[in-house]
Nucleic acid binder design. Structure first.
Length: 913
RNA sequence: GGGCGGAUAGCUCAGUUGGGAGAGCAUUGCCCUUACAAGGCAGAGGUCGCAGGUUCGAGCCCUGUUCCGCCUACCA
C-alpha cells in the first residue's frame, strides 16, 4: 500500500514544510481555554526583535518544545506563550546604524520620528525570529504572541513603576553609575562585562604641601589624578599615619587636597599603601568620598572626553589643560604621564593585570559616570526572592546553580533602571516646567538629558493636570526610558493580563517551568522572581531549568566576530530539523557546556533515516490480516518487545520529569535502533513471511501497535518525522500532536520473555562471532549444537530455537555433548551453555586460534583477579554477602568458559596440524 | 581575589547511593541477507589529568597539585 509512496531515504524538507503550517493552521498548539487538565505553562524567554535564530535559541526552544509537546500529549492544559523583547539598546543601535547609512541620525530625526521609525522597522523585520522558531517546530500558542511594548505590557510596566515609587522602592539618585560613552546611556551592573587586560600601574609622587617630602601613590589611570580630591592612607600604617590631616599639592594643578585616614579603601599590602581618591571616576572612591565629605570633580563629558570647563574648575595648569582638552581619557593618559615624568614625579611603572568593564551591547569601555538616575531599592525585593529558593518554592535545576543565584542575590546592589535612550518604556514621571527650569530647558530643546535629582517629579500613569506645588499645568515627561530588563522582569504575569485579574492569569500563573541559559540568570531570572513575588505574591514559576551554553567544536563561545557561529538554520536545511533537535537534546547534559560537533548531527540524521526505513518496512508488511490478542497468548517476540517497550516508556518519562533530556533521548535512540530495529524487526521477518498464520496475525498487530507507541514517545523530540510517519500509518486519528503520550503498562513487563531473549541474543552473537573469526561467510551452511541440562533451559531453548536458526542462518540442534561429532567443530561458551559450530570446507583455522587465545587470556586475567579477591579474608569478612555471591557466580562462569576455550583451542590445534 | 565546573577510547561525551570501564562518530574485517550502504554483522582501541589518603575494594569519597573553562569581584 503506502510503501510505494515512501522514498527510500527520509527527506526532511518536504515533511517539515507540510506539517509546520498544518499544525498552526489547525490550531493544535492553542491552549485549550476550557480544558480541565492540570495547567502546564511555559513562557518563552522572549528573543530580541532584532534577533535571528542562533544555536543557543535552538537549544533553548527545542528543550521547551519537548516539555510542552510531552505535557500536551499527557493531557495537561498546556500553554507555551511566545513573544519578543523590544531590546532597547540593541534595537536602537540597529536602527541608528541604518540611519547612519542613510546619512542621517536620530538627533536629526527627533524623538517621535525616530520611535516611529523603530516601530516601522519592527513591523518589517521583527518577525524573522518568530518564523525561525516556527521552522524549529516550536509549538507555541502563536495566537497569544506578546511584545514587551504591547499596550497591555506597557500598562503593567507603568503600574509596577508607580507602585514601587509610591512605596519608596524606586528613587532618584545622583550617583556614580556605569556609563557607555558610545550608547550614551547608563547601564546596570550586570550589563557590564569584565575583560582582563594588561594594564600599567603608575607610581606617582604627590608632594606634601608643608615639607619637601612626598607620598607615592599607585594608579592605573593617572589622568584621573586631575580630579583627585584627597589621598587616603591606612590609619594603622606607620609609614604614613603621621601625615593624616596634612595636605598634598596635587600635581599638574593648583589645588591642595587633604590626606585622609581610610581603613576600608586602603589595603596596606597593595601598591604603595597610599591611594588617590577620585570620587567622580571610581566606585570605591565615590564611597570613600561620601565617608569623608569630599567634593566630586567630574572631568569627563558624557562622551568620555576631558571637559575643558571641568579641567579649568579643577585647577589644571593651563598648558596641560590645553593639550588634553577634549581628548578621550585614554589619549590624555600618555600626555599626563609625560608631564609627570618631566617633573620627576613619576617614580616607576609596572605591568598590571586588571579587569576592564565593557558595554554588553557594543563592547565599548564603560566609564564610571556621575549622573542623576532612577534606581530600584532592591534589598526589600531580594529578601523574599532569596527565601523562595532557599525554602524550595522555586527549584533551580541543576541545583548547583542555586548557590550562584543566592550568592549574587545576597550581595545585590540597587538597580539602575533609567536609560538615556529613546526606544523603550518612557518613565512615567513628569516635571513641572514652572517649578523646574531645567525641565523647561529640555522642553525647549536646549537642556541636557539629565534632570538634576533635586527636581521632584510627579509619578503617574498619565500627564498630570496641575502641578501640586504651583498649580501650573505645563509638564515635561522624564526623557529617560526604562531598562529593557525592567519589562522582562514582569513577563510571566504581564503576558497573562496582569494587572487585570484575568482568567488566564488565574489558570496559567504561576508558570510551571522556565527554561533558560545561565547567562541571563541575573539579568532576567532573579528579577522575575523578585517582581513576581512582589506583585502577585507567588513565585513566577516552579522550576527553573538552566541549560548549557552552546560552544563550537573547539569549546569557544560562538560569536560573529570570531566567525565560528554554527547557524542552526543551515544545519536544519542540511540534516533536517529533527536531527538538529535530537542532537541538542542528546547533548543537554546538566552543568556542562555543549560543544556542538557536526558529526553528531549527521549521526542523528541517520537515526531519523533509520526510523523512516523501519516505517517503510512496517507499512510494507502491514497489509495482511492482523489480530490483537491477550498478552499471554501472544508469541514470544511480541511479549518480549512489549516488555522492553514498557521499560523504555517508563524510563523516558521519568528522565523527562527530571529534565534529563540527554538520557531520555539516549534511551530512545538505544531502544529504537538496537532493540527495536536490530532485534525485533529481524526476529519477526520470518514470522511475517508466514503471512496468514495466527502468529503472523498477532505479530502484525503488535508490530503496528509498538511502532505507533514509539512514534508517540519520540514525538516531542522529533515532531516532523513522527507526524509524517503517523499520518502514513493505517489508523484512525488526527495529528500526533494531540495523541496521548504513552504510559508505562506494567502488565507488559515480562521477565520470562526477556530471559528467553537473552538466550537468543547470547547464542546468536556467539555464533556470529564464531563465523567472523573463522571467516565463515554468512551464507555458508552451519549446524549449531547446544547442550542444556536444566529442563527449564531446554524449554527456553526450544522456544528460542527457530529464532536462533533464522538469525544465524543455520540449523540448531540441542544435543548432549557426547553425541557431538568429535572433529571439525568449534566449541564456544555462552553463559551457561556450551555451543559447537560445525565447520565445513576449508577455513583459516590459525586466525581463529589466535583470536580464541587472546580472548582466553583476557578472561584468565579477570578470573585471577576474582580469585584473589575471594581468597582475601578481609573481603570475606567485610564485603556484603550479595557482592561476595556475585563474585563467586562470576568466577564460576569464567571458569566454565575457560575450560571450553581450552577444549576449543585443543580441537583447533588438532585440526591445524 | 572569591566561587563553580571540567580533565574517562583518535574526537565529542555518558557513567544515578564505591563492587565486572560505556555510547555516538571515526577506525579495521566481512556482507549489496528482499526497511535502511545515511545500512547489517563482528572487532580493535582506555594504567579514567598527576600525587597521596580512606576502604577488603576508588573513575566515583578525602587532601594536595597541574592544565582548561565559566561566573563573580572595588585590589587603587
Amino acid at each position: 500500500m503506502a510503501s510505494q509512496q515512501l522514498s527510500k531515504t527520509y527527506e526532511p524538507q518536504a515533511v517539515e514544510a507540510r506539517w509546520g503550517p498544518y499544525w498552526i493552521d489547525r490550531g493544535y498548539f492553542g491552549a485549550p481555554a476550557d480544558s480541565t487538565g492540570q495547567p502546564y505553562t511555559i513562557v518563552i524567554p522572549p528573543p530580541n526583535v532584532t534577533g535571528s535564530l542562533h544555536i543557543g535559541h535552538a537549544l533553548n526552544n527545542t528543550l521547551q518544545d519537548i516539555l510542552i509537546r510531552w505535557r500536551r500529549m499527557q493531557g495537561r492544559n498546556t500553554l507555551w506563550l511566545p513573544g519578543t523583547d523590544h531590546a532597547g539598546i540593541a534595537t536602537q543601535n540597529v536602527v541608528e546604524r541604518q540611519l547612519l547609512e542613510e546619512g542621517t541620525g536620530r538627533e536629526e530625526l527627533g524623538r517621535d520620528a525616530f520611535i516611529e521609525r523603530v516601530w516601522a522597522w519592527k513591523q518589517h523585520s521583527g518577525n524573522t525570529i518568530l518564523d525561525q522558531l516556527k521552522r524549529l517546530g516550536a509549538s507555541c500558542d502563536w495566537a497569544r504572541l506578546r511584545f514587551t511594548m504591547d499596550e497591555g505590557l506597557s500598562q503593567a510596566v507603568r503600574e509596577v513603576f508607580i507602585r514601587l515609587h509610591r512605596e519608596g522602592l524606586i528613587y532618584r539618585g545622583h550617583r556614580l553609575i556605569n556609563w557607555c560613552p558610545r550608547c550614551l546611556t547608563a547601564l546596570s551592573d550586570v550589563e557590564v562585562e569584565h575583560e582582563p587586560v594588561h594594564g600599567t600601574m603608575y607610581h606617582v609622587a604627590y608632594p606634601l604641601a608643608d615639607d619637601d617630602t612626598s607620598l607615592v601613590i599607585a594608579t592605573t589611570r593617572p589622568e584621573t589624578l586631575l580630579g583627585d580630591t584627597a589621598v587616603a592612607v591606612h590609619p594603622e600604617d606607620p609609614r604614613y599615619n603621621r601625615h593624616i590631616g596634612k595636605f598634598i599639592k596635587l600635581p599638574l594643578t593648583n589645588r591642595t587636597v587633604p590626606i585622609v585616614s581610610d581603613g576600608i579603601l586602603v589595603d596596606r599590602e597593595f601598591g604603595t599603601g597610599a591611594v588617590k581618591i577620585t570620587p567622580a571616576h571610581d566606585f570605591n572612591d565615590f564611597e570613600a568620598g561620601e565617608r569623608h565629605q569630599l567634593p566630586r570633580i567630574a572631568l569627563l563629558s558624557h562622551q568620555a572626553l576631558l571637559n575643558p570647563k571641568a579641567l579649568r574648575d579643577a585647577g589644571v595648569e593651563p598648558d596641560i589643560l590645553e593639550t588634553i582638552a577634549n581628548l578621550p581619557a585614554i589619549k590624555a593618559r600618555p600626555i599626563v604621564v609625560d608631564a609627570l615624568k618631566h617633573r620627576s614625579l613619576l617614580v616607576k611603572t609596572e605591568d598590571h593585570e586588571m579587569a576592564l568593564g565593557k558595554c554588553y551591547r557594543c563592547k565599548t569601555v564603560v566609564e564610571p559616570f556621575l549622573s542623576p538616575q532612577w534606581f530600584v531599592r532592591i534589598q526589600p525585593l531580594a529578601d523574599p526572592a532569596i527565601a523562595a529558593v532557599e525554602q524550595g518554592h522555586i527549584r533551580i535545576i541543576p541545583e548547583e546553580w542555586s548557590n550562584n543565584y543566592l550568592g549574587w542575590m545576597r550581595g545585590i546592589k540597587d538597580w539602575c533602571i533609567s536609560r538615556q535612550i529613546w526606544w523603550g518604556h518612557r518613565i512615567p514621571a513628569w516635571y513641572c516646567a514652572t517649578c523646574h527650569p531645567e525641565a523647561r530647558r529640555i522642553l525647549e530643546g536646549g537642556g541636557s538629558h539629565l534632570i538634576p535629582t533635586h527636581a521632584e517629579p510627579v509619578v503617574a500613569e498619565t500627564t498630570p493636570d496641575t502641578c501640586p506645588t504651583c498649580g501650573q499645568n505645563q509638564f515635561i515627561q522624564d526623557p529617560d526610558v526604562l531598562d529593557t530588563w525592567f519589562s522582562s522582569a514582569l513577563w510571566p504575569f504581564s503576558t497573562l493580563g496582569w494587572p487585570a485579574n484575568t482568567r488566564d492569569l488565574e489558570t496559567y500563573y504561576p508558570t510551571s517551568t522556565l527554561v533558560t541559559g545561565l547567562d541571563i540568570l541575573f539579568f532576567w531570572v532573579a528579577r522575575m522572581i523578585m517582581m513576581g513575588l512582589k506583585f502577585t505574591g507567588k513565585p513566577p514559576f516552579r522550576d527553573v531549568y538552566i541549560h548549557a551554553l552552546v560552544r563550537d567544536a573547539e569549546g569557544e563561545k560562538m560569536s560573529k566576530s570570531k566567525g565560528n557561529v554554527i547557524d542552526p538554520l543551515t544545519k536544519m536545511s542540511q540534516y533536517g530539523t529533527d536531527a538538529l533537535r535530537f542532537t541538542l537534546a542528546s547533548m543537554a547534559s546538566p552543568g556542562r557546556d555543549i560543544k556542538l560537533s557536526e558529526n553528531r548531527i549527521e549521526g542523528y540524521r541517520n537515526f531519523a533515516n533509520k526510523i523512516w526505513n523501519a516505517a517503510r518496512f512496517i507499512l510494507m508488511h502491514a497489509d495482511g490480516p492482523s489480530e490483537s490478542r491477550p498478552i499471554a497468548d501472544k508469541p514470544f517476540v511480541d511479549q518480549w518487545i512489549l516488555s522492553r517497550l514498557n521499560h523504555v516508556t517508563g524510563t523516558v518519562t521519568s528522565r523527562l520529569e527530571e529534565y534529563r533530556f540527554d538520557q531520555a533521548a539516549g534511551q530512545l535512540y538505544q531502544h529504537i535502533w538496537h532493540e527495536y530495529c536490530d532485534w525485533y524487526l529481524e526476529l519477526i521477518k520470518p514470522v511475517l513471511q508466514n503471512g496468514d498464520s495466527p502468529a503472523a496475525r498477532s505479530t502484525r498487530a503488535t508490530m503496528l501497535q509498538t511502532f505507533e507507541h514509539l512514534q508517540r514517545l519520540l514525538h516531542p523530540f522529533m515532531p516532523f518525522l513522527t507526524e509524517e510517519i503517523w499520518q502514513t500509518m493505517p489508523h484512525q486519528g488526527d495529528s500526533l500532536v494531540s495523541q496521548p503520550f504513552p504510559v508505562a503498562a506494567n502488565e507488559w513487563e515480562n521477565p520470562e520473555a526477556e530471559q528467553t531473549f537473552a538466550i537468543i541474543e547470547q547464542i546468536v552473537t556467539t555464533v556470529r562471532t564464531g563465523r567472523a573469526l573463522l571467516d565463515y561467510g554468512p551464507s555458508k551452511a552451519l549446524t549449531i549444537l547446544v547442550t542444556a541440562k536444566d529442563p527449564e533451559e531446554v524449554a527456553r531453548l526450544n522456544e528460542a530455537r527457530d529464532h536462533i536458526a533464522h538469525l544465524c542462518r543455520g540449523t540448531v540442534s540441542i544435543a548432549e555433548r557426547d553425541t557431538w561429532p568429535a572433529d571439525r567443530i568449534l566449541h564456544l561458551a555462552v553463559g551457561s551453555f556450551t555451543i559447537g559450530i560445525t565447520i565445513e570446507g576449508e577455513v583459516d583455522l590459525k586466525k581463529a586460534l589466535t583470536r580464541i587465545e587472546k580472548q582466553s587470556q583476557t578472561k584468565q586475567k579477570e578470573a585471577t583477579r576474582l580469585h584473589g579477591r575471594l581468597a582475601s579474608p578481609d573481603f570475606a569478612a567485610k564485603a556484603s554477602p550479595e557482592v561476595i555471591q556475585e563474585s563467586k557466580d562470576r568466577l564460576a562462569l569464567l571458569t566454565a568458559e575457560l575450560s571450553l576455550f581450552a577444549s576449543s583451542e585443543q580441537q583447533l590445534r588438532k585440526m591445524v596440524s
